[in-house]
Design a protein around this nucleic acid. Sequence first.
RNA 1: GGGCGCGUAGCUCAGUGGGAGAGCGCUCGCCUCACACGCGAGAGGUCGCUGGUUCGAACCCAGCCGCGCCCACCA
Length: 845
Amino acid sequence: MERKTRFEPAEVERRLFDEWIEAGYFHPEAEGTAVENFSVAIPPPNVTGVLHMGHALNGSMQDALVRMNRMRGRNTLWTLGTDHAGIATQAVVEKELAEEGASRQELGREAFVERVWAWKEEYGSRIVEQYKRLGASCDYERERFTLDEGYVKAVYRVFKQLYDKGYVYRDNYMVNWDPGSHSAISDLEVENREVEDTLYSIEYPVEGSERVLTVATVRPETMLADTAVAVNPDDERYADLVGQHCVLPLVGRRLPIIADPHVDPEFGTGALKITPGHDPNDFEIGRLHGLEEIGVIGPDGRMTAEAGERFAGLTAVEAQEAVVAALRDEGRLRDEQPYLHSVPFSHRSGARIEPLISLQWFCRMDELAKPAIEAVERDEVRITPEQWKRVYLEWMNEIRPWCVSRQLWWGHRIPVWYCDACEETIVAEDPPERCGACGGPLRQEEDVLDTWFSSALWPFATLGWPEDTPELRAFYPTSFLTTAREILFLWVARMIMTGIEFPADVPFRDVYVHSVIQARDGRRMSKSLGTGIDPLDEIDEHGADALRFGLLAMSSTQDVRFSDAKVQQGADLANKLWNASRLILLNVAEVDAAPRPVSVEDRWILSRLEATIASVTAKLEEYDFAHAAQEAYAFFWSELCDWYLEMVKPRLYEGEAEVSATLLWLLERQLALLHPIMPFVTEEIWSYHPSRQGHLTVHSFPHAEGSLRDLDAEATVQVGIELTRRLRAWRDLVEVPAATVLPARAEGAEPEEFVGRLSRFEFGDDGGDPVAAVGPVKILSSAAIDADAVAARLEARREELRSEVARSEGKLGNQKFVDRAPAEVVEEERRKLERYRAELEELSE
RNA sequence: GGGCGCGUAGCUCAGUGGGAGAGCGCUCGCCUCACACGCGAGAGGUCGCUGGUUCGAACCCAGCCGCGCCCACCA
């Protein structure tokens, strides 16, 4: 064992990680069955991604459980890989091109996609390397990518089968158009933000009447696409107008006045302009009533020819100004009011969503959702913490069709071919040569699939599905999934649906929804706010073990602030482990690690260790990482180091074989217990342990030994510890110099040997008068003791006791308490009172 | 508009019916032959507010105040 008193993580982390990789510990053979094996599929980070605190937390949790199960001897696979992240990756490369003064359009599709692949080859492994820094024990030899050849095959198989079942279809439908990425996006990729707009009230004259209908809108430019005005069917004010028409100002189109229950009579005038082409609500109303669907805003965000000559070509913002001006000219603008409301924005590009009707591919989800709902209801997939189960079920019960096509080039190009000659549509896993119906040439669909369509297959596509591979047989279903709550629907729900539909089994048994780590000040961690904390900086500064411990320890609730103190606690723990190990390993007189208790404190610590093993293990198994980490810390620091090591130092220095063997056993089990949480420092220390046969990474995980529990020893030592503490406190209060040993006499049973040594009292048979009593210990007079300080101390203690006696007497004097509280509670209170009275009496002598 | 969570020591958080806890910070004393990233001893809290249930409430119930998150097609 080295002499240096500091554990230096940077020196050992890379070396140990290389040793683990070279030994192949993380690369299991595809043997056995999923029931006996243990497997986890990492939530695949974006290939453009860099490791952030969420990855680090999630990785620490997964690695803790993966390592624990590997140590238990289970054939364990942690599958790693990255997601091609269509929009994000395409945007990165397009930005590169823009800086070169080029564009993807100039390059053309094929060359552009090649360019993205080149980018991926160069930069795509960055985040994988960062997971290694964390110590993640993934199978880096089985790294997967959602655009791998085999993975593409899985995606196409799924698409084809869903199409054949009639779930996947093409339709003109209202989509969330993202003008930023020039693509449709799904509902889940939209975020609503509060925006202050102007609410315009516009008068629509009723045909053949002097009356007008006043409608309100924040998007006056969309009126150019209005095809009706709706009122509530129960609204008496307008009952007579239903069935008539009004005339659309600026355009002159006749708009039917319809009745629809969606209209809230309380809002504004109770009349609603209907724009099926540019409003999701109106779209549904329009479909119900068979209204015309007009599009006046194009995918480029500019007004189309349908908007009329005056407006065509303007941007939507320009068109809004022009329409408002024109309405004002015509005297149709009745009112404008500032209006705060929530507006959809693209989660990816940040652009304001433009709802429009577009020809897209959809997947209906209702049939897929049914068994996925049942699986969770029946706890075949358990969601922890439990409140997320209900959130999942509620969302799944209201699931809507999923727009799966994206107008991008980077991704899985949809495996659909069109024949222009005979209008045949062919869906196939492999590109067909020519049209099966007429033999004509085919043209492949331009769009790609939503990235989440492929990540939905992750747990089985990474294992080789649709081939019947040994990996699939050995490792599917996976054992559990840990995830951030924001992707519960986006990803987790879809994996459950596809898992049941395709490999015909749930993809994992457990879903753990982990904490969100906020910035130190409680704001979100985000790049744009500048509130992000880089996990790699933390690793550089404090070590991977410290960060892992800190993250697990701080993750007790669903929202927690990043705590530097917890990371520091982890770093301190690593250092303390190192130094306690030095004490043991540099002084033991034995090479045998075995429990050989010869004293009550030996039996005590062995018992406490086994209790800790049982408790920490149980907490890890139920995903309570925070308490597992803190409990392991508390045992090691407070019980093992502060007390036991101090108790046995003399025996250790004397070269006692028994205590040496016991210490080696304690150290071995302590290191193994902590290894899943802090793999590096424990592995490094293990390399100096005489029992070492191989790496700790593949050492057995400790199983709590009930036979070593000894409650009598625990009680006895606890009494000794408490007495030691009271004696130390007494010394401190009367200001005896730390090094001075004071004379004392024990009344009744002699305290345990360590009591006097650790509190610096010398017990003897001196019959002199005591100056004070601490429990059964009489403290004898000595030059080091200040009589006034003792008197003050005594009075303070008496005061404490009087107050306790009063409290206890009050409680016991309450007849209702004595009558109604459980007998053992009352009895315990009586015992306390007796003790307080006895001590008070003793001090008053 | 619905749903969920949170409010406990200066800070970050445990504690979910019987005498308020941890880590950090602070005070005092120790370079005691593993560790000063350490050891020992302390100070510090009307457990958000108001009611209720109970012999007894930080803990259970109701209302209120403050903070956060998720879902939702009211123009």
